[in-house]
Design a protein around this nucleic acid. Structure first.
Lengths: 328, 328
DNA sequence: GTGTTTCATGAAACGCATTTCAAAAATATT
DNA sequence: AATATTTTTGAAATGCGTTTCATGAAACAC
């Protein structure tokens, strides 16, 4: 910058002001400085800037790649979410630092803020680490999480309207006059528990005599879901006629397990998935599912975090959630 | 750091050395300093560090979210690649800055390096911007690209062995005694062209009388592929009996288009996809495809870039590529 | 024409850590 | 015990912008 100042025959502060579009500098001077800077391929050093400003304009986005790798990332949903976040951050000229800190190592998160590597965190997928996130947020960290808020959640959560999702699935099954429901998913995750609650509420409200069984599974992959489903169907006398799966991948797996058991999804049984991943639409048969507005999700996550960074309050929120009826 | 120095009753340089594990500091002193730093929740300011070091330990990863959004990211392949890169960078303690600069705006790329926002670039998907990348690399930018190298490519490319992929598909078709080949993809992308060349080479070598037609499509989505396929089948007198599609998504679309035309994939016709995305395996029928070692890809991209950053040479390379035979 | 505002610019300080170079302390050598 | 060597430590300079505060110039008021 000193060089540019010399070349432009002005002082360093003037160059700084010109480059940052400060109104304190005369238009003619600004033009002149900009021209020289451009001609010499000069770019302001971001690190010096960040050091001085104490603001990095960088958001750390945490994605648990490990667990997704384990699942072969069969579920592209989380990546669409990432894409949405990336776009929303880009619109605000914020840099996106992608990191995969240890699930439960709060220190790794703290370190990022303390060392001023980022201004705040967007955590994609809360998993089972509510406690860690709770503590992190309590320490004053600007933090927004994709997931589901509980009664006493002390941080800002943006998520699907899981309870509504459960209700929508329940309504659909009841419209189809189904009686033997199966909830397929691990309710130890709060998102999943809420979907279960929504389903149950609708059932209770319907007055019909409907049972709800639950099938938990250990792993998010297609294979695990298929095995669990097959195993389940083999053991039960009367198979379910309505399955609400925690993901589209799991729903597809159940469709196949049904088929192997001689049950045709969409005829003898209904199946609803979750997320509306692209392949749900072109699976054979196309899978009925709960769709969330991912684009809105990305925008929402980012805008809530920005609010926090500005010292304002950011309440948790849910995004638009709807049932997409297809052939199952 | 001054505060820590005072509290530890040593000087600032000593603290700096202790925290960076320098051998110049006595073990006892280091312990003591570390203890104080830990106790007071002190973390070295990364921005000051980067400023001083002139090395950021940050790699910018460029992903064209726009085009992927347009395609509804039906193809999760690129994200698996991102996951691989993220993991490899994490292992080396490098930060990953995810950015989506304008495809053709070389300035945005330059700016990132000039402003010391990152040490180098990993570009995921070269698309049609070979010229821009060529110029960028020629300007001395440390750059590694996922794609396919051409005759005169002046930058380091890591990619699938596309030519071999084409050969593998061709061999498969010939083994099945297919005669009317269709290459389904846009050969204006170099990766795709290479696959076409590989297929053609095998055909030429076989001595059999085999024709190869090509069906180009404008867009990577399932819908576009399905429409193109349906349209194609409607127009042709004799349908192809072997289709090599540029992606698994497109292959699945063709399976469905075939079905609508009364042709069963795997019986009257063979179809081979590319990438081996998870849903290829559980599509109905499971899709035969060309699989690449993504994990190796991530490692390779990163290690090549690190070599460049160390001033060494980094030749282009291809990763392990194989045929996965399934039902189509 | 003098006094007051307003505007534009620059000198110096600052943000935080690292590095160079010199000095001090500890250890080894004779 | 005195000297030579090695190991540790610290003062000051450095990397690069931004900000504060002061000054000079220009514009306005009377």
């Amino acid at each position: 910058m000193d060089d540019i100042a010399r070349l432009a025959k002005v002082s360093k502060p003037t160059v700084s002001r010109a480059l940052s579009n400060s109104p304190l500098v005369k238009d003619a001077t600004r033009e002149h400085v900009l021209e020289i800077a451009r001609k010499h391929g000069y770019a302001v050093n971001r690190n010096a800037q960040k050091l001085r400003h104490k603001r990095t304009n960088t958001i750390a986005v945490s994605l648990d790649f490990r667990s997704h790798k384990q699942n072969h990332i069969s579920d592209p949903f989380i990546f669409e979410l990432l894409a949405g976040v990336a776009e929303a951050l880009g619109d605000l000229n914020q840099d996106l630092l992608l990191c995969a800190p240890d699930h439960n190592n709060a220190d790794a998160f703290q370190q990022m803020l303390l060392s001023r590597g980022a201004d705040g965190f967007i955590v994609l997928g809360q998993g089972h680490r509510e406690n860690m996130l709770e503590a992190f947020a309590a320490s004053g960290a600007p933090l927004v999480v994709w997931g589901a808020a509980g009664e006493h959640t002390g941080y800002c959560v943006v998520g699907s309207d899981n309870y509504l999702g459960g209700q929508l699935a329940g309504d659909y099954f009841i419209r189809k006059n189904r009686k033997r429901f199966l909830f397929f998913g691990d309710t130890s995750f709060r998102e999943i528990q809420l979907r279960h609650d929504g389903l149950q509420q609708v059932v209770a409200n319907s007055g019909n005599e409907i049972e709800i069984d639950t099938l938990t599974l250990s792993n998010f992959s297609y294979e695990a879901a298929f095995n669990a489903a097959t195993n389940y169907l083999g053991k039960r006398r009367s198979p379910p006629d309505a399955v609400f799966a925690f993901s589209d991948t799991a729903a597809m797996a159940f469709v196949c397990a049904f088929r192997d058991a001689g049950i045709e999804a969409g005829k003898e049984a209904s199946i609803v998935g979750y997320n509306d991943i692209p392949s749900a639409a072109y699976f054979n048969p196309p899978v009925t599912t709960i769709k969330q507005d991912i684009h809105q999700a990305g925008k929402q996550l980012v805008s809530s975090l920005m609010r926090l960074l500005d010292g304002e309050d950011a309440p948790s929120s849910t995004i638009h959630t709807e049932l997409i009826v297809r052939d199952t």
